[in-house]
């Protein structure tokens, strides 16, 4: 399931509801992304996105994950709009019979969401405002998935 929204959400509640009632699942892995303010200078993080393409791009990444790993279910929730430090930005959850597939698929989803989902983060600080630059290491992280995936 995919949700792109400006509303906040409770990752705990989402995780409890995820894959509920299924008995073919032995492993659920989740990742939650939070607005970080290490230097205590951030006031707001504004997340811009490309409505339409965002849903298409993430759906494609989710489909690819389902193709590569035997997943019982996949969940991606990603917010846009103005967020405060400490707020949840997004979450990913994967469910599978065994843990390896769930861990690897969640890792794969995060690597691709970082660099291939059309979101742009802007940090509005007390004194300055700047767009977050994409990191070379995030782009390089995709390379490890271009070779054949593990079972």
């Amino acid at each position: 399931m995919l949700r792109v929204q400006s509303d906040s959400f409770d990752p705990g509640k989402e995780l409890s509801a995820f894959a509920k009632g299924r008995h073919d699942i032995g492993a659920i892995v989740s990742f939650t992304g939070v607005v970080r303010d290490t230097d205590k200078t951030l006031k707001t993080m504004e997340i811009e996105h490309y409505p339409g393409m965002t849903e298409r791009a993430i759906s494609k990444i989710m489909d690819e994950a389902r193709t590569r790993w035997n997943l019982a279910d996949v969940l991606v929730i990603h917010r846009h709009g103005a967020l405060q430090p400490g707020e949840v930005i997004m979450m990913v959850a994967t469910a599978s019979a065994h843990r390896a597939a769930a861990f690897e698929a969640a890792d794969f989803l995060m690597d691709y969401l970082k660099s291939r989902a059309p979101f742009w983060k802007k940090e509005i600080g007390a004194n300055e405002t700047a767009w977050v630059a994409a990191k070379d290491e995030d782009e390089a992280a995709l390379d490890r998935w271009t070779s054949s995936p593990p079972d």
Binding site: M90, L113, K114, S115, R116, A117, P118, W120, A134
Partner: peptide, 10 residues
Amino acid sequence: VAFFPPMTGG
């Protein structure tokens, strides 16, 4: 056609 800087999702 859409133009944009490298994406910073996640």
